[in-house]
Amino acid sequence: MEKNITVTLRVWRQKDAKSKGGFKEYQVTSTTDTSFLETLDILNEDLVSKGEEPIAFDHDCREGICGMCSLYINGHPHGPATKATTCQLYMRRFKDGETITVEPWRSAGFPVIKDCMVDRGAYDKIMQAGGFISVRTGSAEDANNILIPKEKADEAMDAATCIGCGACAAACKNGSAMLFVSAKVSQLALLPQGRVEAARRAKAMVAKMDELGFGNCTNTRACEAECPKGISIANIARLNREFLKAKLKD
């Protein structure tokens, strides 16, 4: 049953990328069936009506598929719910009167633009380095032209569910983007269409990831535990294999 809930939001406020930020507390009332982002909307409407600057945060589809929402809530990327994005987080996860700390992703690869909004363009750059296949796209081929074992297709599909939200690098104590890169390498490396450029792709994407200043993976599994799509670190082992094989052939 829907109930009213009043919480204190301790939110990171930062005017712009160059300014020094800090926490500011706000009290907001919503309902247990209201989503966390809607609660932020309610707070922002209140701030605007008072003539104050609303809190900047990323969001788009609000269905858990676009990868736009972020926020580090009470010590977890995307909040305390497992395998869910911030937009899928509801206020019933919190207690009435609770103080909720909301921070932006913290990683050198994701600089803060404003308040809780970070620049995740680094992931786009990694994708541009090799996260694609160079084929001439005509009309769709017959699905049975290239036979793919079901297990491979399933694994590729699981890797492809990565929405590139950045929770992996945000959760990692090393600021490593390996789970993201490995998912993007795996979704193609597992399929015959992606094998042709597999070696070049692994080398290019890892080189770009290193160049952009992401950290080294130490296999803590924090990324996997916090990933809203449950991407497995078995993909990281595959990326390591692909990369080392490619480098040994150089």
Binding site: R10, E103, R106, S107, K173, N174, G215
Partner: peptide, 25 residues
């Protein structure tokens, strides 16, 4: 290198996930 990659500002609240081994951290 990893400390540098983490950035200069740390999280105010860090809740350790129960699936993450203490030793790995």
């Amino acid at each position: 290198r990893n400390r540098k990659a983490r950035g200069s500002v740390r999280y105010a609240v860090e809740a350790r996930n129960s699936k993450v081994e203490w030793s790995s951290q």
